[in-house]
Nucleic acid binder design. Structure first.
Lengths: 250, 250
DNA sequence: CGGACTGTTGAGAAATTTCAATGTTGGTGG
DNA sequence: CCACCAACATTGAAATTTCTCAACAGTCCG
């Protein structure tokens, strides 16, 4: 599964288009402009650092397959994951304007990405006002997801925090067709969840047991099975408003 | 101090320009384009809600004077502040593309804002590629600040969280000339700080006492006096990298 | 002067972490 | 195919941090 040529770029941006289309109209030309901007496809193995904080950046990565995290490491060795990315997400589009990132980006699983050179993206910002706004929009949805994480980590108790994160992933994976009725594949460890929720892995383990005992959801064998989504949403105080999934016209 | 005509718009965007100029070149035309986009100046009194979550938005607000918070309220009455804004910040520029916000925006103090109609801003995104990128950039800095808050709230203990928030405000206020050598005016309550740090106001009070006892800083009479910034930064593990203050060329 | 909000302090309760031990699983080399 | 290893998951008990509840002091404003 080595790197391959940019043959079926069609597939590469399919999940991105699946996310953008329902929210705003996207012309065939715009889809083509995106597709033509991919310079390279790259694979990373699980646990690989993809972008290190501070590195100068000259391209941005669209996640095609796998799970990616943005995270920071603290002096005492603790790690905080700020956002978990799913296929169809740009993982470091922020770097287009920031020129560097203040955080790391790492593969949680083995991962495939499509590379968009900043030169191409910059050309889009100069010539394609609408498409450019859609890219901006996608960074704003990231920001919104991150704000919801502040609420979780700041105010929700451990059980609700985990429930909320899994509700969010459920919905985000549904949008790109990677979830089914009753759950989704989630090849992460409990330690990953603890880093995303600001808890210890021991406590995540206990809370997962509670969720199981309460017949809310089961996380086992890299799969989340949701037993009662309505009740789970209530426990998490989850509403998908902050994902901005509804249509907004150009 | 009622609403006034858009006379000296010069002053209105001065803090914004003070923040943008050191980071990227900004032409006189661009400054003028911004200045001419202001449709109205508006004052809010302390504790007023300025934008309610979900409201359709048709303009964005530049904070001219005072402190503003973005926050969400939870079912149990708790509140989480996601970002505290200082003069020169757009407080809801995200709404330009999102069309609504998923959180509330409220005045922490009495506040003056300049209103930018979305029609004007949209014209900028269509005709002024560079200026448009600078607006995008400013939303990305918001996102970066919010990510740092995730780290604080997720991984730092109470003392470091408060220290970090106050370090950040110190630096952000310095940039716009609202801080002096040894501190800055901060007309917020301990309860505001607790809402921004995910703590209770009782615990914030105790931690402020510790910071005082350790000769790190004093927060009294609506003023933060920093006694030992270097040591404070160490306690907070603060680095201003995430504020993207350095120059990045167009 | 009286409220109302804000700040301060103490004591006990609750949530979460830490430390430590043990179980489970999947992959790898012999 | 099996034994073994490393990573991951699970559980208990004690320690720690933070919260809750409650009382009281200070300050500002009308």
């Amino acid at each position: 599964m080595a790197n391959e040529r940019v043959g079926n770029s069609d597939d590469l941006i399919q999940k991105l288009v699946a996310k953008l289309k329902p929210r705003d109209s996207l012309s065939a030309d715009e889809v083509a402009a995106l597709r033509n901007s991919v310079s390279e496809v790259r694979d990373y193995s699980a646990r690989k650092t993809m972008v290190r904080a501070g590195d100068p950046l000259s391209s941005s990565m669209l996640l095609v397959d796998g799970f990616v995290a943005r995270y920071k490491d603290l002096a005492n060795g603790q790690r905080q994951i700020m956002e978990i990315h799913v296929p169809g997400d740009f993982v470091d589009l922020h770097g287009l304007l920031l020129k560097r990132l203040e955080h790391n980006v790492g593969a949680l699983t083995s991962v495939r990405i499509a590379l968009f050179p900043h030169s191409e993206l910059k050309r889009i910002t100069e010539t394609e006002a609408h498409l450019s706004r859609m890219l901006w929009f996608s960074t704003l949805v990231d920001a919104s997801i991150q704000r919801e994480t502040i609420v979780s980590v700041g105010r929700r108790d451990a059980l609700a925090r985990i429930a909320h994160l899994l509700c969010e992933l459920f919905v985000r994976l549904q949008v790109i067709g990677l979830a089914d009725e009753d759950g989704f594949a989630l090849p992460l460890t409990q330690s990953d969840l603890s880093e995303a929720t600001g808890l210890t892995s021991v406590h995540v383990n206990r809370m997962l047991k509670t969720l199981r005992d309460e017949s809310l959801l089961t996380f086992r064998n890299a799969r989340v099975t949701v037993h009662d989504f309505e009740r789970l949403k209530r426990v998490a105080e989850f509403s998908d408003d902050y994902l901005y999934l509804e249509r907004r016209e150009r």
